[in-house]
């Protein structure tokens, strides 16, 4: 239990580092948008969703109606539905209230770290570890950003803006090695998202949702004919 929890904390450090500049910038922008430090921290504490918090700030500044901001938040975050449904397949059985509790901490980043963890059934303790350190970083650095955000050296802030994407790449590449299915899954989803993004057909939130779903379904149907799953092709490589 404790070992799993500390493994989770350790795995979550890269998220905490990645959130640092993003949360700091959020805190700073919240201040310029006229939010008090309590209001800024409260948004990170209760909503805890980076992209939609940024969007909310720009909509608040633009004087958009609160109801529209809430609807926008829903659209941006509906992709988590897919992630938690996927994660449910991998998590150890657990009491409902515990799952309802840690589901609050599922973000793009924590989902990626938890779901690519390769120890069979993923323990609740591991997920909690990842979530607590990531959430802590997000909330604390929102507050810090509201107070001092402007004073971080520009070159460092610029460099750290890559952190989350570097982490995504660091999670994806090891699974891609020698596994064509993973390469196709990621490549196809990236391609679909690029098309939707550059044609402006869908907003980012919907676009990620559609790209992920289409890629996962299409690739699954192709592979079902050859009788392979992600795990069985991974296992095959281990055996070879």
């Amino acid at each position: 239990m404790n070992k799993q929890f500390s493994a989770g904390l350790k795995a979550g450090v890269s998220i905490a580092i990645g959130y640092f500049p993003v949360a700091l910038t959020f805190g700073l922008l919240a201040k310029t948008a006229g939010l008090s430090i309590v209001e800024a921290i409260a948004m990170s504490l209760f909503v805890y969703a980076g992209a939609s918090q940024y969007i909310a700030l720009s909509l608040i500044t633009a004087g958009v109606a609160p109801f529209v901001i809430v609807m926008n938040t829903f659209v941006v975050n509906i992709r988590h539905f897919l992630m938690t449904a996927s994660l449910n397949e991998k998590m150890q059985p657990e009491r409902k209230w515990v799952k309802a509790l840690y589901s609050f901490g599922i973000t793009d980043e924590s989902f990626s770290v938890i779901s690519t963890h390769k120890d069979g059934r993923i323990s609740t303790a591991f997920a909690m570890g990842v979530i607590i350190i990531a959430y802590g970083s997000w909330v604390v650095f929102t507050g810090v950003g509201h107070v001092i955000g402007a004073n971080l050296p520009l070159f460092l802030k610029a460099a750290m803006s890559i952190a989350l994407y570097a982490m995504f790449i660091g999670l994806l590449v090891p699974s891609m090695k020698g596994n064509r299915k993973v390469v196709i899954l990621a490549g196809l989803a990236a391609a679909i998202h690029c098309v939707l993004y550059f044609t402006g057909l869908l907003s980012t939130g919907w676009s990620i949702l559609v790209a992920t779903l289409v890629s996962s379904v299409v690739v699954e149907f192709i592979y079902v004919r050859s009788g392979k799953t992600v795990e069985s092709s991974l296992a095959k490589e281990v055996n070879e």
């Binding site: 897919l82 449904a85 990626s112 779901s115 994407y165 990621a186 989803a189 379904v217």
Partner: peptide, 27 residues
């Protein structure tokens, strides 16, 4: 099984969509 299979694919697909094209626009 087909639904479970699709759900198992999602982590890898979502990583692809999260990385591209957003990584190109960090600055």
């Amino acid at each position: 099984p087909i639904v479970a299979g699709v759900l198992r694919n999602i982590p890898y697909a979502v990583l692809g969509a999260l990385i591209f094209p957003a990584v190109l626009f960090v600055q």
